[in-house]
Nucleic acid binder design. Structure first.
Lengths: 356, 356
DNA sequence: ACTGGCTTCATAAACGTTTATGATGGAGGT
DNA sequence: ACCTCCATCATAAACGTTTATGAAGCCAGT
């Protein structure tokens, strides 16, 4: 077995490779008789087409890449299921490309991976981070459509993007905190490379100033340990602890909670805590965590849908002999609303029913 | 740009495609002069090789697949980082293939995916579940090496496998519970398709019988909601609650904890709880969870290493014109020890230091 | 001056498909 | 009897690489 080619099928049936090919692909021009013969023979000798040869001959691109940094954030799992859902009925292979080594973003790896994606003539890319200008240009040159999720596309072209409405989400967070009367906030946040940072921060700042609250922004690397250490250093240099801690995402929240537990700080009595991104265990923590839910599954679904649409339009255009470049419509830029899941870590006394 | 082939480089430099090819790949037989010329021209016109054509011509296989069901379990993330670590310095693309749709395992999807893997001439497979006999046979026929992780390989060939030593792990769990004097255990567990179930159950049963404890095995589908409902139904049909709940893995634990909270059952006073698989939030739950840690990162690393070794030996053999079939040595079957992380949900009063 | 060997390169065939082009034969019309 | 048309198929070229084969040029050794 193995290494069975279309020519073997041709030999066995006595039909030409042309007929075999058409029969296997279900194309017209083959008599029902021959077709049956071919299918039987193919099954018999265990023929399985060689995708590289197919792709080469018919210039087709058959996989889609999701570029991701630091998969440790469980938010990516939901995003993935959304993407898979949207793409399920198409025949693409979706591959996930991690540009982080041991959890930290690596620009050289980004270069290598983009190179690799082009080498394998990837049909389209969904990226969760703002790629380098060189790499976006490279992908554009090779007519590879890009959809940005929860990350800002470069200004240049009007790339499609689907993100949480982070600005309004942050306003919701800020408003809720203000309702509790808290006026002293600490926003623990990841670097600007993850561009959601920008709108989130802006929202928090605007909410603070409109409620006469003070907000301190504390930047940490995008992982648990950095968050722990950054917050530790901050608290060591400050005489009092802030009334509220807003954690920019899950890994940071995790690091912060570790420190809070070590320090014996009580939530929400000493310090209220609120996080971005819902996660499975949030309601089981002590106290249950108030959290801004991103609906990353919906984001993934939307991203998958728009990418599929763009690619399909692209191949249609190519069939008509028109330009290969993807066309990006303005309506491909979408924002999905977040929602605040109120539990107890903010100071509320909700007894949340189990949803669903 | 785009669509630049090796022939364009050839045309620009005035050298033959032979020379260009050798120059680009760094092979000997090209003068330093020509080589430089080629590299310059290639960079100039933005040439990027077509992987499909390369793969076709030199029968090479350049990607490795990790087959997975229900990625919702965060254990897969650690596994992945382990695999990536082991494979980082090789030039394979590792793709992850999910055979679950909306979180539930789908046999037809398994078939489609295996088919697809063969079509793209995947170099090797790491699978986290026992594939169907047909699919294992298919992969074997096409000389695709398979490494099983945390899942039982079929008896037939001596497939490589790396798993937790689940039997001894379960003994540890059982012994610890017995030390607390608990004699009435409930083991909430997923179906046998995930074959770790078998050793885990055997260990728990043996531990129980050697300590004169009673153990009830309660099977649930492998997701949170099923666990919730299964446990709910069980408790409804029973007059008293068991002294101990052992959760077979994380999703089941999550479902169980939800129900426990809804019922107002106190841990560990009313019922002790112990889970399989460490996870980030385990120490922050109320109470902190005692858990059997699998070290899935090490498992991934080992799996990646052995797969790499097998493939490399395979291509060596092929170069010498020998058989293409992968050779599986007995020492490729490995078990890695689990360890018990004792916190409070079992009834201990440990004050765990933050590790690392 | 001739041979042999080495280096550097070009030519063309191959990898496994798809498909443009055209051949064949039979049915149907006049 | 001839022509046309259509369905069915075969032949061969293409996709973008790598590589087997061998040619050309040069140098050294005789």
């Amino acid at each position: 077995m193995g290494k069975v080619t279309i020519r073997d099928v041709s030999r066995v049936t006595g039909l030409s490779t042309y007929t075999v090919s058409r029969a296997l692909s279900g194309a017209p021009g083959v008599s029902a008789d021959s077709r049956e013969q071919v299918l039987a023979a193919a099954r018999e000798i265990g023929y399985i087409p060689n995708r590289a040869a197919q792709g080469l001959r018919r210039g087709s691109r058959d996989s889609i890449a999701v570029i991701v940094a630091s998969t440790a954030n469980s938010y990516y799992l939901d995003l993935m299921t959304g993407i898979q859902q949207a793409l399920r009925h198409f025949d693409w292979t979706v591959i996930i490309a991690d540009v982080a080594v041991d959890g930290v973003y690596n620009p050289r790896l980004e270069d290598r991976i983009v190179q690799r994606l082009i080498e394998s003539r990837t049909a389209g890319v969904i990226t969760t981070l703002t790629l380098s200008p060189e790499n976006t240009a490279l992908l554009a040159n090779w007519d590879v459509p890009i959809v940005f999720v929860d990350s800002a596309p470069p200004e240049s072209a009007n790339f499609p993007s689907v993100t949480t409405d982070n600005y309004n989400a942050s306003l919701m967070v800020g408003d809720h905190l203000a309702e509790h009367g808290y006026r002293d906030w600490l926003f623990l946040v990841y670097p600007r490379r993850w561009t959601t940072r920008i709108d989130r921060e802006r929202g928090i700042r605007d909410a603070a100033s409109s409620h006469n609250a003070h907000v301190e922004v504390l930047e940490s690397e995008n992982d648990e340990d950095s968050a722990f250490r950054t917050l530790e250093a901050y608290l060591a240099g400050s005489e009092r602890i802030p009334r509220v801690l807003i954690a920019g995402n899950n890994p940071l929240l995790l690091g912060a909670l570790r420190l809070i537990r070590d320090r014996g700080i009580r939530i929400p009595a000493d310090m209220a805590v609120i996080g971005y991104d819902e996660f499975a265990w949030a309601s089981l923590l002590d106290p249950p965590l108030t959290v801004l839910d991103e609906d990353s599954e919906a984001i993934g679904r939307l991203a998958g849908q728009t990418l599929a649409q763009i690619i399909n339009e692209q191949v249609e255009a190519a069939k008509r002999g028109e330009s290969q470049s993807p066309v990006y419509r303005p309506e491909y830029r979408r924002q999905v609303a977040g929602r605040l899941i109120v539990r107890r870590s903010c100071g509320c006394h909700v007894d949340n029913e189990r949803p669903r």
